[in-house]
Amino acid sequence: MVIMDQPQGSLAGAAKAEMRPSPVSAPEPAGETIVRIENLTIRYGDFSAVKNVSLDVYRNQATALIGPSGCGKSTLLRAINRMNDFVPNCQVDGRIVVRGRSIYDPGCDPVDLRRHIGMVFQKPNPFPKSIYRNVSWGAKINGYRGDMDALVEQCLRRAGLWEEVKDKLKQVALNLSGGQQQRLCIARALALQPDVLLMDEPCSALDPIATARIEDLIDQLKTDYTVVLVTHNMQQAARVSDRTAFLYMGELIEVEDTHVLFTHPRHPRTQAYITGRFG
């Protein structure tokens, strides 16, 4: 294993150039919109899960999607990297523009899109392979030509897992604890150098200590990535996100800076939800 001298934070910038061209070459300044959702409606058959939602996701920020079960937050999240393409009878109207490119246009390759927009799921889902191969797999099949050992180490460091696994990289990933598996899944997503990381309730299967580590990690990842997070845990949304969007019955009720939404929400329905009066 090659020990890298580069600081952890340099991963996104250093290895990206070797991987692939970015869909839009010039990086956008912090605070700029990296994902623009415009009048998005998503239907499963006759049921509208997301109704005419418009929302901007800002670069290098964590945006939390909150709302009661069935409000459409996971559907909305999955739409950002077209994971809903796998759902039968799912129809999408409206637009999602990622760094200037409409991702539902016929010319957009969803596989390529998902290289730029990684995803971490509710339940950790490592491959039944070694820790090393879990991280290297995506980069390898995408033709990564750099130093794979260095990439694996950097991704594991970035995910806060390196010190715990550096001596057992060849061991099967399924032997790791739930929290370690989830951080491995984050490292695996980072290996593809995504612009945006989607997280669908990433801590719901974890204990409080593992949860705290993931939350710290989200905070650190914002330096190089943009995070969109679905969570049922409102305190988690309050702790880790910069902006929070509240959805109810498929509609975007309110989106606001997190500290404002949790102290003085504008909409009575948001107020009722965050204070536990319903939902």
Binding site: Q235, T263, I274
Partner: peptide, 9 residues
Amino acid sequence: YQPVGIDLR
């Protein structure tokens, strides 16, 4: 209870 919104205020 870590209250938010109107309860926190």
